[in-house]
Design a protein around this nucleic acid. Structure first.
Lengths: 217, 217
DNA sequence: ATGAAATTAGGTATTACTACTTATTTACTT
DNA sequence: AAGTAAATAAGTAGTAATACCTAATTTCAT
């Protein structure tokens, strides 16, 4: 890619479900004249459509959004082979989302508590081919690198049924209620719960629910 | 209060733990020259100090913030009899927070998905003595009004210790671990849990955690 | 059509939580 | 100084969740 300039600006699309946050990103990016914001989405579904239409250079997207969350939207963008760089923005810095975002093909992962210069730099650095992370996220990555000793941590795959059960657990349903709800045995529900907890590396409902909620339940 | 103008502007303080959101609020308010942002806080503790120092006309604060959340900060502001109007901003529109914010003395409750004009209008309307709510919040209020049939629903009061335990429950700690952590008996922890569940009208950890998380744990 | 993954579900123990009640000791307010 | 709210904690039961293992179907893609 040739050097961006005011006459040949970097073309960016934003996605966040809150007007205030979109305004904030616009403001933080506005210090640089070589950046142009083409359009904004307030949910993941719209984002995919907008990216397909505008073919931006860079997408800056929130994770938690209605209809389709940022990571799912990213997956669709990759599936459709839409050639653009995607930076995820998030209020919650947990390794679960981070890993999922990376597995889905994110080019960066930034905290919403980021300064103007850092955000602008991040955008230009992904254009150069780097992957960008905010400081706090780097710390998360380092901790993971040590604990897993794996360079390419395999993404956590949660099946359809497991997701269904996770959602019900998160709304406060007991295993018995879930079983009645889905017309299956309590034991089956318990199996799914057990498997979920193994996959997510947690030991109790509390953590399970934290994940469920952070996944958008 | 006399009419605000460019030479005699409305003095505002912001609070949100994310730079992007603060930038967004600044941007949305910047269309009006009779508004001046005096200072910003990134947590509730700082907010209280800043309000004490600047004595602003209006505070616009997030609820979920580190150290001290927006509602607790609001309570302190009221306790200290600092004369200012407080508008809460939130990403999560649930009646639990809404009621608590109102009980703590909030003058407005707005969604983060708010347009520039609406936000500016809200600020000027609270100055006039109105209480301001975004559309989605009004719907919440209406539903509550019908379901509770009470004009002034008494707020749910969670004590300091209960909050502490709620936070630990939400991080996935067992009662035993919480007991060890706080150097108290498991039975005490269980009592607190029981009382919390009564107050919040829930029957299991799952729902308890939903509250804890939505309260900012 | 065959293998892999997903869904189903039972067995067996152990631990944790939930549902109350009662009661003592602090802490704070008027 | 008295009164109220908060924090402490034990008793007694019953229910739910967690931690494994094993294993039969079902589904789905190559």
């Amino acid at each position: 890619m040739k050097e961006p300039s005011e006459s040949n600006p970097l073309r960016i699309v934003l996605a966040d479900d809150h007007e205030i946050v979109r305004a904030g990103i616009r403001r933080l990016l506005s210090v640089n004249r070589a950046i142009r914001i083409l359009d904004e989405a307030s949910n993941g579904q719209d984002l995919v459509d907008i990216v397909e239409y505008h073919k931006p250079d860079v997408v800056i997207s929130d994770i938690l959004m209605p209809k389709l969350n940022g990571i799912e939207a990213l997956k669709k963008i990759r599936e459709k082979k839409l050639d653009c760089l995607v930076i995820m923005l998030t209020a919650y810095e947990d390794s679960f989302h981070l890993e999922n975002a990376l597995a889905a093909g994110a080019d960066g992962y930034l905290s919403k508590d980021i300064k103007s210069k850092e955000l602008v730099d991040a955008v230009f650095n992904v254009i150069k081919g780097e992957r960008v992370f905010s400081k706090s996220v780097v710390r998360l990555l380092q901790r993971k690198a040590v604990s897993s000793a794996e360079l390419d941590p395999e993404p956590i795959v949660i099946t359809k049924r497991e997701q269904e059960i996770l959602d019900l657990v998160a709304t406060g349903k007991t295993s018995q209620e879930i079983a009645d709800n889905l017309f299956i045995s309590v034991r089956t529900v318990e199996s799914h719960r057990y498997n979920l907890m193994q996959k997510l590396d947690v030991n109790n409902v509390a953590e399970l629910i934290r994940y469920a909620i952070s996944r958008g339940s």
